[in-house]
Design a protein around this nucleic acid. Structure first.
Lengths: 227, 227
DNA sequence: TTAATAAATTAGGCATGACTAAAACGCGCA
DNA sequence: TGCGCGTTTTAGTCATGCCTAATTTATTAA
């Protein structure tokens, strides 16, 4: 009996459980069965399996809860789902509403290497095209509420680059050319709007003066955390 | 009974059968069982299913043969496998020997849109990193023997662009900037080598003069068919 | 405290796709 | 023609993960 084996089904259950937990809802067999379009009786069966695998804490008639390993696995699935969605929208030109179904399949591809390289290829985006945060390789989520768009910064603000909302090839190349990378700490020297585009002048850690002059939309794509 | 459903297993069998047919080998239960690491008895069972689905012609004790729909499906899998391998090597920076296992998973992703967009994203490569031809969206294979590398063309040759051997981002962008696209018909005006790099001057259908000046390796990546 | 109701579990089946063991086939060679 | 051996098929199991129907548990209201 290969109880250690991952399966599509088990992964779908873990994802559904994480989703309910994040909503603060009780993880009951009914709620899961609704999410997965199965029947409560089937959920009971799977809860036993997941419990035996140490992925959930399951008390009959009381519901289930992810354990540490279970949560790690579920977050890894969320990461894969959102990175693939981002790739399809930003690189392949899909519309944001066309990618969910395909990402449901892609998230089950087993290869940490693949997803980490895809992450790097896209410039480590912090949010997917729906605006949901993408967990990093260690499973950490970026809290959007703490971030501001670069065009909202004021003179004298010091902040660090934390993410990119939407990360098309050209935009990322542009950022790279300017030496703008994730984690860069900078101080805003001047912000002004001119003829429909926004210009931000800033100084980086090495006291080098840089500037961005983009359409308003492009500047808004760059997220930073105030220091 | 949902006999029309595609399954991972069935697809693996179709691929194995195609592979043996391309080698000119007889498609026996034993040979398939060796390829798929199952037992001949299991193959017999699956042959019946595939036969009922109209994907193979199966005569007990005689072996199996792909039908038209079966072959189409198998070639689509080959296309997906090779395109994903190409993507992983050319765009994500994998080594050519690291990608097979992952492509075995990716080839089962069901979405014609996805694979066609990935194909376009990479510039419609004709060969994968192992040098095997990639079927196009209609299942047509490119016969490598009929193609020549652009640096082998001589003054006055007329040819059409048929493929790119390896298609890194930068290389493809470069080609795009020059207006070089799949199917472009052109006539070579001048070829010469200078200081380790090769220069090809050519005229396209609209009589515009263009030139490529690249390292020898880059020019060799571009494949064309003589007219 | 108990009865009613909603939710969860158990019991028993079914389809898929693997397996083993045993029987049937096919082909080469005497 | 017929024997024998390797290949193939049949028969019967097993695990996964789903289902329905019947039972059990928890909770709420009288």
């Amino acid at each position: 009996m290969k109880l250690s084996e991952k399966s599509r089904s088990r992964q779908d259950y873990l994802k559904a459980i994480l989703s309910l937990e994040l909503n603060g809802a009780k993880v009951s067999t009914t709620s899961i069965s609704e999410k997965l379009k199965t029947k409560p009786a089937s959920v009971t069966g799977m809860f036993k399996v997941l419990s035996d695998l140490g992925l959930i804490e399951y008390i009959p008639y009381r519901g289930a809860e992810l354990t540490k390993p279970g949560r790690t696995e579920a977050i890894s699935l969320m990461r894969k789902h959102r990175l693939w969605e981002t790739f399809m929208v930003e690189n392949l030109g899909f519309k944001w509403d066309e990618v969910h179904e395909i990402a449901e399949q892609l998230e089950h591809i087993e290869s940490k290497e693949l997803i980490d390289k895809l992450d790097a290829y896209m410039g480590y985006p912090s949010f997917d095209p729906h605006g949901d945060p993408i967990p990093d390789a260690d499973g950490n989520l970026c809290d959007r509420r703490k971030l501001v768009q670069v065009n909202m910064l004021k003179q004298g603000d010091t902040a660090s680059v934390q993410g990119v909302l939407g990360s098309s090839d050209t935009f990322l190349r542009h950022l790279g050319d300017l030496g703008i990378r994730l984690g860069l700490v900078f101080t805003v020297m001047r912000v002004f709007e001119f003829d429909g585009s926004i210009q931000v002048e800033f100084e980086d850690e090495d006291w080098n003066m840089k500037e961005m002059t983009w359409s308003k939309k492009l500047v808004e794509q760059l997220l930073a955390e105030l220091k």
